[in-house]
């Protein structure tokens, strides 16, 4: 059986909120290392990969592998019933028909309990190759969100060009063109504002802004976002969570003939 207790319901609320517009039905794969999710969007352009390590829960118990097939719209409805600061416990039997969610207020004696019916989801797992990326950029997640939203007003696509000069996000559309360039920057007082660029070779790739703006819904999960790029492979956008847990998005590039 599964029993996983989260100190704050907020974490799961934010994770589900960040991915629910990209993927609808998905398996939450539970085993003794934690709860994982991997799903492609309908158009097979983006891939979501979430890992909530067992250390992110206390306690965490999962005796055998259980796949919880959950509709994210249903999960969102139930998670709305939890206050952000509620303690959240997920429970399921070994061959479950439902997943049980318990919300407890730390300040009062309220205890709410919900069951969500599970679905059989036949989802193929993709192997994500270990990649030594040519460029890795860490930057404030709010800054990345603003850049994507700003450029989307002008164009459907953004080119991300990383050289030793910095990283340039550029677009052009019917009304004109625009670009934002960032250079490495260290703020000792506020390290969450740092921009760090780690480059082994120059990279230039083009991506759909619609998806990037969608990924940025995860900005509330982490002050910093990490972008990993290599020529002609999907972009990795990573939001690191505590205890080595993470929410990752992969986006296939647009490539010319």
């Amino acid at each position: 059986m599964l029993e996983a207790r989260l100190e704050q319901a907020n974490l799961l609320k934010k994770v589900v909120d960040a991915i629910k517009d990209l993927v609808q039905d998905c398996n939450f794969d539970c085993n003794d290392s934690g709860i994982a999710l991997q799903a492609m969007d309908n158009s097979h352009v983006a891939l979501v990969s979430m890992m909530l390590k067992s250390e992110s829960f206390s306690p965490f118990r999962c005796d055998r592998n259980i796949a919880l097939g959950i509709n994210l719209t249903s999960l969102t409805k139930v998670l709305r019933c939890a206050a952000n600061e509620d303690i959240l416990t997920l429970k399921a039997e070994d061959a479950p028909d439902v997943v049980n969610l318990v919300f407890e207020s730390a300040e009062s004696d309220r205890l709410s309990e919900y069951d969500i019916k599970l679905m059989d989801i036949d989802q193929e797992h993709l192997g994500i190759p270990e990649t030594e990326y040519a460029a890795t950029i860490s930057m404030p997640s709010a800054e990345f969100q603003k850049i994507c939203r700003d450029l989307m007003a002008l164009s459907e696509s953004v080119s991300i060009e990383c050289t030793k000069e910095g990283v340039k996000f550029a677009c052009s559309g019917d009304i004109g063109s625009g670009s934002v360039t960032l250079r490495s920057h260290t703020n000792v007082e506020k390290p969450q504002l740092n921009v760090e660029i780690d480059l082994s070779e120059p990279v230039a790739l083009t991506f759909s802004l619609k998806y990037l703006v969608n990924f940025c819904k995860a900005s509330g999960l982490s002050e910093q976002v990490r972008l990993c790029l290599s020529n002609e492979v999907p972009l990795l956008v990573e939001y690191a969570l505590s205890n080595n847990s993470y929410l990752r998005f992969y986006l296939a590039p647009k490539i010319g003939d």
Binding site: M40, V45, L47, E124, L126, G127, P129, V233, A252, K254
Partner: peptide
């Protein structure tokens, strides 16, 4: 004209 690629062109089923 750049063409949107699919994730499955890069990552294959396990």
């Amino acid at each position: 004209q750049k063409k949107q690629q699919s994730i499955s062109n890069f990552f294959t089923p396990r």
